[in-house]
Design a protein around this nucleic acid. Structure first.
Lengths: 350, 350
DNA sequence: TTGTACGCGTTATCAT
DNA sequence: ATGATAACGCGTACAA
């Protein structure tokens, strides 16, 4: 069976290229890898042959040999919300620029799905994995994934040491507490006193923010306990009930778990005839683009989501290359004062 | 070298499992695959061994053999915007539920990057690929990717036959023109006459919408040519200049390329003292969640983004399984009337 | 500078 | 019902 049996577009193999360039398979392989031991002439002719035949190397075969896939695993809670979309986007972009592909899995804040994701990554032999705000404990993560090839993108998390210690290798953190502190300081400086926090779900990041609100108020000598409202995880879809609760005992300002919730709440409060910021000040968290376009524009604690994704990919690739975790990073988080709180700039800014 | 040489966590192989269960490699393989020829007893004992050893199969080796990767490629323009985030999310979710992993690449509306993506998919041997609104022509796509394993998620696109013909196999379309028609009809019925379209970039989907606006107005006997404003691709980031242009010759209503642009414009017009909908009506496109939370809430043409992603994954998997493209799909697109146009419901609805 | 031969871990064919 | 063996496509140690 010679050249005859080429049925509908058989896949081109390395040996086809080699044959065409009249060299051996190994030479072809080396030529394509720009091995300096191969003469420039043959290198060129092999590449020409590869181009003509539209040769595409088989990643499976290659990774079976070299034990690397040039693939990264990215596990995050959800691709829908702007923050994680931004993180994923930046991660993928950085990875692609460095020659890595990325396999994404949305864990949906579900333990089972997250474990499954890790298994999938293991099966596919991703060179490294990055995990964004998982519900699995860091400890379990490091058990299931080679810790030397694992980057954690973690908001200021309770189960990790506080950010004011040294950065933890392989961990990208954000100074959530610092951001909240700045926001609450802004509120207090603007004369707000009766400040409430609107919680969301039961995630750790929520507690961090709640505690930061309370701590800052305490440090400013405001003794009344901070009022807390509880929103379901997806409350932003149907915030009417929550808005009513809040309206029934309206504080002077609301610090919300995130921008989605803040925007939804602002929207629902409007239906109740409550004006922002005249009747109540509102502060969000995340700094999504829509926070800058709402009416009134939302004062928020802005997190560098794109930088988180980029840094995660960059760190992960370095970890893969060096075989050791790079320095951890703590990214700054700051308040952006807009129109939903008093003391901000006059309308028209931003 | 017996059991001694197990240096830092050697990876567990199938033969380790086989050894532990005292069967051959082939039996182990079959047992794990639930091959009925293997006795139930050995099947169980093999699985037990695999579990104890935490065996994880090597996908590279497997796909080298079986020529399938249980991996899907997803190429889309951008993971940042809500629409594609939604599509990606639904795609990944459906794929995962059916046992497939997904490799995403953002093409960023760049020809080179899109071609690179296709090559990456080819190298990794994805079982199929889905392409969302690419800038590459369908023709080129079908040249570079096996057309029997290629799903196109295509808004009502000029280079494809119109949606009112039969659906095209392997293509998920949306009835963009129909949606725009409904929106413009709503405007005309509400008394709007001088209607302008705000374009974005030079993409085909833009033309489809622009033409649909014009055609609908014509069919309603409005003879004045529709005024067109031109926004750069990323105009929503800095819409002030565009807003000034529009304000200088204010039409009665604006139909915008998409919601982001509409929201940004509404925001910028506000700075110019122009009220919506009193001074000008605004219609968006996409139906992103924030359109429902703006002030005033945005009237928009809603596209079923999640369903697009889900359908794409489902179709692709069927294509992979059956070796042939499933029926095409045309998804409905409808106008959602809110507060940014007159004739909508009174404030408080939605 | 280039070619030969082997092995990566798995599944499938063929024998038993 | 199970085992031995070959093959998937590539990279590389070794030989020439």
């Amino acid at each position: 069976m010679e050249l005859t049996g080429d049925s509908p577009r058989r896949r081109i193999l390395l040996k086809d290229v080699a044959l065409r360039a009249s060299v051996s398979g190994s030479t072809a392989s080396r030529a394509l890898a720009d091995d300096p031991r191969i003469s420039l002439a043959t290198r060129l002719s092999v590449k020409a042959a590869a181009a003509e035949l539209q040769y595409v190397p088989n990643a499976a075969a290659r990774s079976l040999r070299v034990r690397r896939t040039r693939t990264l695993g990215l596990l995050l809670p959800d691709l829908r919300d702007p923050v994680h979309g931004q993180v994923a986007s930046a991660f993928e972009q950085e990875a692609r620029q460095q020659g890595y592909s990325v396999m994404v899995v949305a864990g949906e804040r579900d333990v089972v799905r997250e474990r499954l994701a890790l298994r999938i990554f293991a099966e596919h032999g991703t060179d490294g994995v990055a995990i964004v705000s998982s519900v699995l404990a860091p400890r379990e993560l490091r058990e299931r994934v080679d810790p030397a090839r694992l980057i954690l993108v973690w908001p200021d998390h309770r189960s990790l040491p506080r950010h004011d210690g040294p950065p933890i290798p392989g961990v990208i953190q954000t100074d959530d507490a610092g951001g909240v502190r700045a926001a609450v300081t802004h509120l207090v400086d603007s004369g707000y006193r009766r400040i409430a926090y609107v919680e969301s779900g039961v995630r750790d990041s929520n507690s961090t923010r709640a505690e930061a609100v309370a701590a800052t108020l305490r440090s400013r000598g405001i003794r009344a306990p901070v009022r807390r409202f509880f929103a379901a995880v997806d409350a932003w879809r149907a915030p009417a009930y929550l808005a009513e609760q809040i309206a029934a005992d309206l504080p002077e300002a609301l610090v919300c778990y995130d921008d989605q919730l803040a925007l939804a709440l602002m929207n629902a409060l409007r239906d109740l005839g409550i004006r922002v910021p005249e009747d109540v000040g509102i502060v969000g968290f995340d700094g999504i683009p829509y926070a800058a376009m709402s009416n009134p524009r939302l004062t928020t604690v802005a997190v560098p989501s794109a930088e988180m994704g980029r840094a995660a990919a960059a760190s992960l690739i370095r970890a893969v290359r060096d075989g050791a975790l790079p320095e951890g990073v703590v990214l700054p988080v700051g308040v952006v004062v807009r129109e939903s709180t008093r003391g901000g700039p006059p309308p028209g800014g931003d």
